[in-house]
Design a protein around this nucleic acid. Structure first.
Lengths: 356, 356
DNA sequence: TTGTATGCGTTATCAC
DNA sequence: GTGATAACGCATACAA
């Protein structure tokens, strides 16, 4: 095969030098605009693309920091695995990641702030996070931004924080899917809604999608209960709900706080008689799906979200370019027959390997 | 940060040279076994990993050939997009792809053979294919193998051909999912089965999964019709099926040849009254899902399959290592509410980007 | 602003 | 089998 066209070829073809060509492709490269245009045009004609691997070779290692709140193990472990996987794939480009887990609870905000400070001082080139967006956190993000360090949010979001971009599940669609599933399972029945933090970024969007699809399908929402991610409260509400609406045919639990509600359903002898759609995939819930108590759950692909965020952060750092403000990942329906694909350890987002 | 340990460091630490270190990491490198062991041990201790990007720099471009049968546009376009996407991501490692479409029909076998011959003579480093595995094709694969050119199958498979590995949808699970969906939609009803080539690699596995799940759930299969991927035959069978079993409550169409069956359902006034689960996603089917005639379809992720195959082929060519013989991709449930995520053009397997 | 020289980490080549 | 050295393709410090 004819050798691939390289920077020397373009330099020769344009009667310039390789530094000029290099600068022409660097968005912040100091070069005469006309010369740049000319070089880019010739490069285009000869189908030249700078080899990023070669370019990275002589540059310093890129460090991307990650701050993750350690609430649900099944969730943040997937997030971390996603980051690690993406980082491994980029290792040859001299990229590293520095993952910090924040235990929720007392002092959470301060510990979080400390990590942000460390990243800001310590020469981090970008930060990916999934945290509580308290005023203090927003402040920290603002400071990073001022220091020229791009931030990205994963799973949830805080657009007003000044973060560069966000990676999320397609929340509205996820809500719609839950409504459609309940509609199919109950035959346009009457359902109950158990939410997490009703006003949170994630829940408002999920519920918006759910309500719209429910309205279109004639699915009647008997009542909504906002358990505020509190298990005790969720159990109380579930008790009350089934007392008030003993003939409810379906339930959608939009948060990961589903165990208490499901337990009430089981103990009241409603298992299998009321259609249940839940969120996420974690061991306790998997049991209920196998047992038939829960008919379906919506998987948010935290692994894929984190991997995509890492990849896009690397792209931004190296190219100073961003296509989107919000990247979304496809929500998936998990039922009994495909559950096993979501419970084993995985290597690749959305794919499994198995020996035959 | 402290500079990353490189080949010079290991050479110094082991009292050898960079040539020796390089050979120690090359499976077919000529080097004294003891010396290799020693070097690898030290490298391990110092956490040294050769930088593959740097390594590829001075090596020749890798060419991976793709031979795809051009039957269903929505399907092979996704396959090609997957290959192209994976190839782009590896472009910096000096990888190219050479995609050839084979129009089905007269002379198909010869044209296919011609491409294989060209790849064999033309210095291809690996071949990925989705074709009809006729004796002639198997022979061609054998010849490539003898020439030291690894082959991989995508979507379908022919293990006896001597192909190195295969990437497929998780077929048995896909069949099981179809059965579970029908069971939920009909309430353990009685269903009809319309298959493609019943004895083909893909269909046997899908049907195996379907029958097992159906048996476990008490879903009764009234009859099976093997339409042999022939639209006319499919329409005939559908007519006959509903005459023989007018009270059938559900239908599973395991091949992409679903249009004729669906048309019979629509024209006989059964739309919305009989539960329909189909396969794949393509424009005509999408219409039926939107209209409510088809309740769900199982997406095979051809994009992801092709991308994974390309990636694994690159890995094998550059490392002479293979983890699996069969890699599987996760089948996904597509219903009306998430259909839009599977019909627009996509950039990444399993993820969408959208502006907010 | 422009051009030159050097380094990045590895493999291929070739002489030993 | 072993070691020196020339690529590989690019970015950048530095001199101009």
């Amino acid at each position: 095969m004819d050798r691939k066209v390289n920077i020397y070829d373009i330099a020769r073809l344009t009667g310039t030098t390789i530094s000029a060509v290099s600068r022409a492709f660097d968005p912040k490269g100091k070069i005469d605009p006309d010369k740049r245009a000319m070089i880019l045009e010739v490069a285009e004609r000869y189908n030249y693309r700078p080899n990023r691997a070669a370019g990275r070779l002589s540059r310093k290692t890129i460090r991307i920091g990650c701050v993750m709140i350690a609430n649900i193990p099944a969730y943040y472990n997937e997030l971390i695995a996603g980051v690690k996987s993406a980082c491994d794939k980029l290792a040859d480009f001299k990229v590293e990641c520095d993952v910090r887990l924040i235990e929720p609870g007392k002092g959470e905000e301060e510990r979080c702030a400390a990590v942000f400070r460390e990243f800001r001082k310590g020469g981090c080139d970008g930060v990916i996070m999934n945290i509580q967006y308290t005023p203090a956190a927003l402040d920290a993000i603002g400071r990073l931004r001022k220091a020229g360090i791009p931030c990205a949010t994963v799973t949830s979001d805080a657009p007003e924080s000044g973060r560069l971009f966000s990676v999320q599940n397609d929340l509205a669609t996820a809500g719609g899917m839950a409504a459609e599933l309940l509609s199919v399972m109950t035959g346009r029945g009457r359902v109950l809604l158990f939410t997490g933090q009703k006003d949170s970024y994630v829940q408002t969007r999920i519920l918006g999608g759910f309500r719209q699809e429910a309205a279109e399908r004639g699915l009647e929402v008997l009542a909504e209960y906002d358990a505020k991610d509190n298990p005790t409260l969720a159990a109380e509400y579930a008790d009350r709900a089934f007392r008030c609406f003993p003939d409810a045919e379906g339930v959608y639990i939009s948060s990961a706080n589903s165990a208490p509600v499901i337990e009430v359903i089981r103990k009241s002898g409603r298992a299998g008689r009321v259609a249940v759609v839940a969120s996420d995939v974690f061991p306790e819930l998997s049991e209920e799906i196998r047992a038939g108590t829960v008919g379906a759950t919506i998987y948010q692909d935290p692994f894929g979200q984190a991997a995509l965020a890492f990849e896009k952060m690397y792209d931004y750092i190296t190219q100073n370019r961003l296509e989107e403000t919000v990247y979304t990942v496809v929500p998936r329906i998990v039922i009994k027959s495909n559950l096993h694909l979501y419970t084993s350890n995985r290597e690749q987002p959305g794919s499994h390997t198995e020996e035959r």
